[in-house]
Design a protein around this nucleic acid. Structure first.
Lengths: 214, 214
DNA sequence: TAGATTGTTAATCGATTAACAATC
DNA sequence: TAGATTGTTAATCGATTAACAATC
């Protein structure tokens, strides 16, 4: 295991897409699929499908293709969806609410166990059955409830110091919606979702599109 | 303009990061910066900074570096932030609310002009001063209000048919938070934000991190 | 002018695609 | 067995990094 070379970021980012498309195939009662068919559905090449999957092992069979359910479950295991991950949301605003209400997360092993905010007006209320606590009880909560992931939905620079706190409390990963680029603490993985950045790339593409069409 | 070769996706995705970091430098009253310094701040290489920027022209000066404000504004123009883009949010749920409340968007030229939902209970209410309308008035609204961007925050397959509608009504770009991969209609740019995918890559990285540390 | 730093060409690296022998 | 399709090696393509002449 430890001797295998690191899987590239590009491949990792495609894994959830494979998972999603294979899940759709399961829902459509499709049992087997070839790399060519799957590639067509995902609008990538068959070579890429086979290369990607062979980073993790040979899940197919010559002359047959891939068993959809088996492959989906393998990818689920690779992603770590088989084990439950305890999460907290830091920030009880709209984005925090939106995430707390996401049905899909629980289905894939992400259990949101608490929401934290400094606003006394929301502390004590619940969202989708999840209680909102005051931020000053957060560190103890992380330790006592086996929390793996901290989800930062507060768009303020105050985040910086909180990162250190949650990391020293034993968090294993950070999902960050706050606006600025985070310093990577120790070797804790961070995935950033910069919504503004995403919207700006759309603006660029719209403009580019107009220039080409004129 | 039309003869220049297309800028790669990798570069486009970095543009908002440049914009963000340069804005921080402006706030810190820093007037000039070299590619080496900027690269260090962004944790990329100086070569990459220079290569990226020279896709659009020479904004620097030998022996001096780059003027921060000038460069920031140039990148803003490249991204199209100088012109206002009218937006509507389709889906008045938590995510729609979160986006409607985002201060940053307006600051960068994204003007949200309406929210659309089918729930009679929310139709007529306002979010951050933005009115929620019934979905069946959406097409007319797009045409009458010069709407450029449709933001899909409804996580249902019903989205598929709505895409065609908004496109034929003249939308220029789509920002999609719905779960499935969209078919690209005509040549309208789409930027997908798959939150579940993002969270799953974090799960993968946490697992990978544990394996390496053992 | 001398020093600094760009813009740009060349070299390297990595990711994607093509090809095909292995095998179900 | 013959046909299909994988797993995997080789070729290509593109993106990143290095190097340096141009120039402020």
């Amino acid at each position: 295991m430890y001797s295998k070379k690191k899987v590239s970021e590009a491949v990792i980012k495609r894994l959830p897409r494979y998972y999603r498309h294979l899940s759709e195939l399961i829902d459509a009662n499709i049992e087997r699929i070839s790399s060519t068919e799957l590639a067509k559905k995902m609008r990538i090449t068959a070579s890429q499908v086979r290369q990607d999957l062979n980073n993790f092992g040979g899940f197919g069979q010559q002359g047959y293709g891939y068993n959809v359910r088996l492959l989906r479950d393998e990818i689920g295991n690779i992603l770590g969806l088989d084990q439950e991950l305890g999460c907290i949301i830091i920030g009880g605003g709209n984005l925090g609410h939106a995430i707390a209400n996401y049905r899909n997360f629980a289905k894939r092993g992400f259990k949101i166990k608490g929401i934290f905010d400094i606003d006394e007006n929301v502390v004590g209320t619940t969202v989708n059955g999840i209680k909102i606590y005051h931020t000053n009880s957060m560190i103890d909560f992380i330790k006592e409830n086996k929390i793996d992931i901290a989800i930062f939905t507060i768009p303020t620079p105050a985040v910086k110091s909180m990162i250190d706190e949650v990391v020293s409390a034993g968090i294993k990963g950070i999902w960050n919606f706050s606006h600025f680029d985070m310093e990577i603490p120790k070797n804790i993985p961070i995935v950033n979702v910069h919504l503004s950045d995403s919207l700006m790339t759309l603006a660029y593409k719209i403009q580019e599109n107009e220039n080409f069409n004129i």
